[in-house]
């Protein structure tokens, strides 16, 4: 259980994290999502006790990190951003050093190190220098370092950055497995990843908390149009008239021309109507051959961009309004001044 309460981190001129509060329950896998520079790493660094918040409190399993840092740090396994490792050690040496740092008892250490090596799939490279192993393995060594000592909470900062697709799936599977008996927080700017692994998403941008919800809810909440993707063979271009025949259609957009006589269109309607049946019945009558017809799904990616844009647009709008108001005031003042000047001249 992690509680983050009104946490702010200020640097001299910038605010990296601005009054963030959220909760992560036991056994949850939570994704921290945001564009680069949003404050994800800063938030994680504060939860792990690497840096201290300027204000606010963080509790891990009910213990305040600022008051009893060593007790909290024992319960957290952290994989920092950029995969920092000691390149002159072998994975086995590195993991057993991490075990010592995590205060794993001497008797259990050997067994624990071997357990983690197996779990992270490092058997093959365990005795090679970290310097010489591939990026994917380095990432796993770093992950293994976070797992050693079997901490309750595992915090992973961009665990899949720089990996090839196969390695990404492997690491994802591993994280999913971890989620069964650990509390996991992971950060990413790749949304598909989060939607696959996480039960809950925390979106932050420019240090501010934008949304906390399940990936499905976020997708639903930001979906205001129903889209249908349609691939058709339409030599007479009858699709122009489609909008007149079905009134619910808001717009028909050309997605791409395949240059073999077929074209793909996106048909938008409001989110409460499903036009698929109607289209299927109507189009053949118009000499349009349907090759493909499917519902287009808004992705979490779109939801994410929409959420971030919405916040920014609001801000810009507000500041514009303020500017306008100020300008008007200035104008009024100037007019009054002129009037009084004129009066004085008259006198």
């Amino acid at each position: 259980m992690i509680e983050v309460k009104n946490v702010t981190k200020k640097y001299e001129s910038t605010i990296a994290v601005d009054n963030i509060s959220f909760e992560v329950k036991d056994g949850e896998v939570v994704g921290l999502l945001g564009p680069n520079g949003a404050g994800k790493s800063t938030t994680m660094n504060m939860i792990t006790g690497y840096i201290e918040p300027t204000s606010g409190q963080i509790f891990v399993n009910g213990i305040d990190i600022l008051k009893k840092p060593n007790k909290v740090k024992k319960q957290i396994g952290y994989m920092p951003e950029g995969v920092p490792l000691y390149y002159e050690l072998t994975p086995k040496e590195f993991i057993s050093y991490m075990a010592e740092l995590k205060l794993v008892k001497k008797k259990e250490r050997k067994q624990e190190v071997q357990r983690v090596i197996n779990e992270a799939g490092l058997q093959e490279v365990q005795n090679r220098l970290i310097r010489n192993i591939s990026r994917g393995y380095k990432q796993r060594v770093s992950l293994a370092g976070a797992l050693v000592g079997n901490p309750d909470v595992i915090i992973l900062d961009e665990p899949t950055v720089g990996l090839d697709p196969k390695q990404i799936t492997e690491i994802r599977e591993l994280i999913k497995k971890l989620g069964k008996n650990h509390t996991v927080i992971l950060s990413s700017h790749i949304l598909s990843e989060i939607s696959q692994i996480c039960e809950k998403v925390i979106i932050i941008n420019k240090g501010k908390l934008i949304a906390v919800d399940t990936p499905e809810n976020l997708e639903k909440a930001t979906m205001d149009n129903n889209g249908i993707l349609l691939t058709v063979e339409d030599p007479k271009n009858n699709i122009r008239n489609l909008k007149d025949q079905i009134k619910e259609i808001k717009n028909v957009e050309l997605v791409k021309d395949n240059h073999d006589g077929t074209k793909q269109y996106l048909i938008l309607s409001s989110s409460d109507v499903d036009l698929r049946k109607q289209l299927f019945n109507l189009l053949p009558k118009q000499d349009i051959v349907i090759l493909e017809l499917k519902k287009s799904e808004t992705t979490l990616e779109e939801a994410f961009i929409k959420l971030i844009d919405a916040v920014e647009v609001n801000k810009n709008y507000n500041s514009k309004e303020e500017n306008k108001a100020q300008k008007n005031e200035n104008k009024e003042k100037a007019i009054e001044q002129e009037k009084s000047n004129k009066k004085e001249e008259k006198k």
Binding site: Y50, N70, K73, I76, P84, L85, M98, L103
Partner: peptide, 14 residues
């Protein structure tokens, strides 16, 4: 420089 400082400072060692 390598960032390994984070590993040390987030461990329960004083």
């Amino acid at each position: 420089r390598n960032g390994t400082e984070q590993l040390l400072l987030t461990s329960p060692k004083s």
